[in-house]
Amino acid sequence: MVVGGGIGGLAVTLGLARRGHRVTVLERRGEFTELGAGIQLAPNAFHALDRLGVGEAVRERAVFIDELRLFDGTTGERINAMPLSEAYRRRYGNPYAVVHRTDLYRPLLEACRPLANVELLTGCQVTGYEQDATGATVVLAPGDLRLTADAVLGADGLRSAVRAQLVGDGEPRVSGHTIYRSVIPMERVPEELRSNAVSLWAGPKWHFVHYPISGGRALNLAATRDDGATEAVTGVPAGRAGVLEEFPGLSPRARALLELGDDWHRWVLCDRDPVERWVDGRVALLGDAAHPMLQYAAQGACQALEDAVLIGDLLGDAGDAGDRAADPIPRALTAYNERRGPRTAKAQWVAREMGRQVYHPDGVAAKERNVALSALSSEELYEKVDWLHGARDYARV
C-alpha cells in the first residue's frame, strides 16, 4: 500500500506493479494531479525512468538543455557553464532535461492506470499506521477506517503523516528562503532573451533561475530571496511589483527576464535534517517523506525516482504475507534504508550548502566564488557531479 499519489508514490507503484505486486495507492486529494512548475531531470533520473518503462514518454515532453550556466547576478558576468552536449551524454548515458512537473507526472500516472494490479484511490486521508508480524495497516480519517497490506510505503511528502509516527521529528525546518515562481508563454519572451540553457543569476542573499519547459512553449522563472522567512507558505499569490522589489541590483539582462513574470506565486522553502532510520518493520518512507531537500541541487525528484527503483528491485521477489519463514519484506526495506541513507543525506547537505556558498554570498565571498568557479574546466565540473548524475546503483556517494 502506497500513501501518496505524487511523483514518488506513482513511481514506486509502477516499479512494484511491474514486478508482480498488487499495489493500492491512497491519495488524500480528490484527484490524481501534480502542482508546480518546472523541474530539472539529470541523467540519474532518466536511468530510473527507463527502468520504470516511462523514459521515452518523458523524453517526448522534455527540453534537452545545452548547458547549466552560472552568472554573477549583479554584474552580469558569466562565471562558468557546464556543457551538457554529446560529451556529457556519453559520460552519463543519458541527457539533462527540464520539464513541467505535469510532463513527468502524467507518464507515470498513464502507465499505472491500465494495470490490473494497481488500484488508485482518492480522498484517503491517512493519519497513521499499525502493524504486526503478518502485515501493516493504515488508519484513515474520518472514522478510523483501516486498510491492511503486506507493506506500507509512505510517499506522502514533506509533512508526511507516516513520517510523523515513524520518525516523530515534528514540523519541517523552515529555511528562511522565499521562492517566487511564474510560467510565461515563450511567445512573450524576446528572441534575444531566449536560450536553451538553465541559467542561474547569483546575487547577495538572492538568486534567479530560468529555463524553457513544456517542449519549449513556456519559460519557467524561479526567483529566491534569503529573507529570513519563519513561516511556511505554499503557493500564495504574489504581486508583480512586490516580487520585483525583492531583487534589487539585478543585471540588465536578468532584470529584463524577471520583468516578464506575471501571475507570481510564492513558497517558503522547507527541508529536514537527514535521519538514519526511515523504516519500521513493514513500513518505509521514500521521496520527500524520507529525505526532503532544498531545490538547489535540483535532485529532489531525481532521488525519489531512485528510491522507487531500488524498492522495486529489493521487494521484487519478496514473498507475500503468507511467507513467514524469512520475513522478506522487512529485510528488503531495511536493505533499502541502509543503501539509500548515505546518498540521500549527502544530497540534502549539498543542496543546503549550494545555497549558502554558491548562490547567495555577498562582497568578498562572492568575488572569491567567482574566481574559484570560473577556473574550473568542464572536466572538473563533471567530476563534481559524477556521484549524482552518473549513479546507476542508487547507493553511490
Rank of each mutant, 00 (worst) to 15 (best):
E187N: 12
F247R: 07
P237A: 04
E231I: 11
D262W: 04
A202N: 07
A229F: 05
E191T: 14
V209H: 04
R188I: 04
P190T: 07
K205P: 04
P252D: 03
H207Y: 05
L258K: 00
L258M: 00
S199I: 07
A197W: 02
L257M: 13
V209R: 03
L257C: 11
P204H: 12
D226V: 15
K205E: 12
P204M: 07
E259G: 08
A254G: 13
S195K: 08
P237T: 07
H210E: 05
D262F: 05
L258C: 00
E245M: 06
T234F: 09
P212W: 00
A202V: 09
V233S: 08
W264L: 01
A222K: 09
E259K: 05
A254V: 03
I184K: 04
N196I: 08
A254Q: 04
S214H: 14
L244I: 10
E191H: 13
P252M: 03
L200P: 09
L193I: 06
G249R: 12
R240K: 14
T234K: 06
A223R: 00
P248L: 01
W264V: 04
T230E: 11
A197K: 12
H265P: 02
L250R: 05
L219C: 02
N220A: 03
A218F: 12
G261D: 07
G242F: 06
L257V: 15
Y211W: 03
R255H: 08
W264S: 08
F208H: 06
L260Y: 07
E231R: 13
S199C: 13
G239D: 15
W201K: 03
A229K: 06
G215K: 00
G216Q: 01
G216P: 10
L258G: 00
E191F: 09
P185A: 13
V209P: 02
K205L: 10
A223V: 14
G228P: 06
P237M: 04
L250V: 01
E231G: 01
R188E: 15
A241I: 05
V198Q: 10
E191L: 12
R253Q: 14
E231K: 10
R253D: 10
L260A: 05
I213D: 05
D227G: 05
P252T: 02
W201G: 05
A222M: 14
V236M: 08
I213L: 02
V243K: 00
V198K: 00
Y211I: 01
G261I: 08
E191I: 11
V233F: 04
